[in-house]
Design a protein around this nucleic acid. Structure first.
Length: 301
DNA sequence: ATCCCGGTCCCC
DNA sequence: GGGGACCGGGAT
């Protein structure tokens, strides 16, 4: 029945394990092969991020993690839609609903600077802060979970810096991780006004805060470009909504709220800022919600 | 019992 | 390094 939640006694954040059996014996991650330890009734108590799913994104303090199922073990690609009823996926949804802490382990092939060079790294506790069905890179529906780090006693240390991924080039430890000089240019261009709601977030010194949002994400596997035609200037709320697929940009350059498919506003533009329509479409395709799937799944559960 | 798997190992 | 065999724990 019940699972064990939280960090086991004697285990430290940042501790390395040789292999899955060591993780198993330390009660950090019980399954020897599965990426998710979880069931619908108990929730999920641990996951392993191993880079086996192309739709994953590891940003250190938060992770977009693909659920399991639908994969052909030979080709290692998705060949079927994933389901929210698969035990691990249902477990992560339960963890989301009950706000249960999930132990996160990174494997050596996880493909981010936060992954260990060898073995498995216990990376601390995360909360599932959202999930949704999306059309994955291979064209099938995947369940995508957003996990955010809650165990803040110790900063997350990059394990390597030689991964040629512009998204991580300036990463140290912070929630704002992509602040290229071009993103700064775009923010200056808009005087830190959000292109959707025009909000300017004031800071203590009389300046303002905004964020540069990339339409086509920089990191693998999307490999978007860090260019003016790929960046929006957004307030933190709309940036978060944008990054998590809660809004997309139409070909008419309106901000559209995806769940209800309603237009929030026209995007505001300043001179010398043109978006590339292929980047707009890339973001929209990435997040085109599989609405039929969602209603079917929810009706069945 | 049986099926699934973000493994692992062995061999070429 | 890549394909195939074989793995054992956990859930059903």
């Amino acid at each position: 029945m019940s699972k064990f939640f939280g960090t086991p006694d004697g285990t430290k954040v940042g501790q390395l394990f040789i292999d899955r059996r060591e993780l198993h014996e330390a009660f950090v991650h019980r399954p020897l092969q599965g990426g998710i330890s979880g069931t619908k009734s108990d929730g999920a108590d641990s996951i392993v991020v191993s880079g086996g799913y192309g739709d994953d994104q590891d940003h250190g303090d938060y992770i977009l993690y693909t659920g399991h199922g639908g994969k052909d073990p030979k080709s290692n690609r998705q060949v079927k839609d994933q389901s929210i009823d698969a035990p691990g996926n249902a477990g992560l949804i339960t963890s989301f609903l009950k706000a249960l802490p999930v132990r996160v382990v990174r494997g050596k092939h996880a493909g981010s600077p936060f992954a260990p060079l060898a073995g498995y790294l216990y990376s601390g506790l995360y909360l599932v802060t959202g999930w949704q069905l999306m059309r994955g890179l291979d064209g099938f529906v995947v369940v995508l979970f957003r996990l955010e780090r809650v165990d803040e006693q110790r900063p997350l240390e990059p394990q390597s810096s030689n991964i040629p991924d512009p998204e991580f080039a300036t990463t140290i430890v912070s929630r704002r991780i992509r602040d290229s000089s071009l993103a700064r240019d775009v923010k200056n261009m808009y005087d830190f006004h959000c292109q959707i709601c025009d909000t300017q977030v004031p800071t203590f010194d009389g300046n303002a805060y905004a964020e540069g949002a990339h339409l086509r994400p920089l990191g693998r596997p999307h490999v978007g470009s860090d260019a003016l035609d790929n960046i929006l200037c957004l307030c933190p709320n709309h940036h978060t909504q944008f990054d998590f697929g809660g809004l997309v940009i139409s070909d008419n350059l309106e901000a559209v709220e995806t769940h209800r498919m309603t237009v929030i506003s026209d995007l505001r533009f300043r001179k010398n800022h043109l978006l590339a329509i292929e980047n707009v479409r890339y973001h929209r395709e990435l997040w085109a919600p599989a609405k039929d799937q969602i209603s079917e799944e929810l009706a069945a559960s």
